[in-house]
Amino acid sequence: MKNFKLLGKKATRFGFAEALVELGEKNPNIVVLGADVTGSVLTSFFKERFPERFFSIGIAEQNATTIAVGLALSGKIPFFATYSAFSAFRNADQLRISVCYNNANVKIGGGHSGITVGPDGATHQSLEELSFLRTLPNMTVVVPCDYIETKKATIAVTEFTGPAFVRFGRAPTPHFTTEETPFKIGRAEIFRDGRDIAIIACGLMVWEALVAADELYKRKGISAMVINNHTLKPIDVKTIVDAAKSCGAIVTAEEHQVHGGLGGAVAEVLAKNYPVPIEFVGMPDTFGISGEPDELLAKFGMTWKEIYSSALKAIHRKDKNINTNHVYRSVKEIEPIAKELL
């Protein structure tokens, strides 16, 4: 790996939970609401440290979301966290009207997200919430790539006033960024330079994108850019458009339905500003099943392998007429190798 190496595996929920405690130490206005699964999403850390600033609301997510609004309208910075299926979908109307229309300073933690919640099965595998959250005016949507970045994101969403969502997961996933890795809400980070294809990813798929980029280079001599697009909203238009201009083809990769999430956001940006071929890696418009996280990621096609093959497809779809304005290599130059795989 060029810039990053695997430091181990750790569930992103630890990043969220540790950040809450850190925030609690610094800011007396940080308040946390629980909806029964505090030991799972690890808001239990905060509850143990600051019992007077933790409120148990029970299995009543609609109420918890709106209570958070009441606290925010009283000057507090409430975090409400439970499984993403319940903190960002069950309570959809509350998020729309009470949180976002009020522009209330409510922070939502979406735990146990994606297919990697595993054996619990489809009911608990939240793979749709990003599409909904992304359409809400005033909402900020962050999908950090690993444990450290989840910690940074959780702290960063308290640095502005307004609704925000931070997504994290249950299963241990590659941990590869460090304290020094740049992170800013709303700014996509180029994790690897490249000129033939740009892979734009979020969440655990960022690591898979780095692996895919390595393999593309090793096996085919293809130079792949990797962008960690942790903030789905507000989306970093400039970085995405620049990537399209310099690479001429895009692959998006996310642990979410292929419709409406990161892929949808990138497609909107490029359709408007600089259309190039895009391939989408994600959950293929279907519900999940029980299984271990790695088995499920493989079964539904959310690994470096799908990113790899999608990159070749996207390159193959590039404009066949050499456009001298483009700085990327034309399909004629790389077609032979791309064809080989298709």
């Binding site: 308040v31 007077e52 600033r53 409120f55 609609q62 109420n63 979301t65 709106t66 209570i67 958070a68 609004v69 009441g70 606290l71 925010a72 309208l73 009283s74 000057g75 507090k76 409430p78 509350q94 009470s98």
Partner: peptide
Amino acid sequence: SIAVGMALNDKYLD
């Protein structure tokens, strides 16, 4: 529910 949140704030936090 927002009112309940406000009342929680006033009674237990502020």
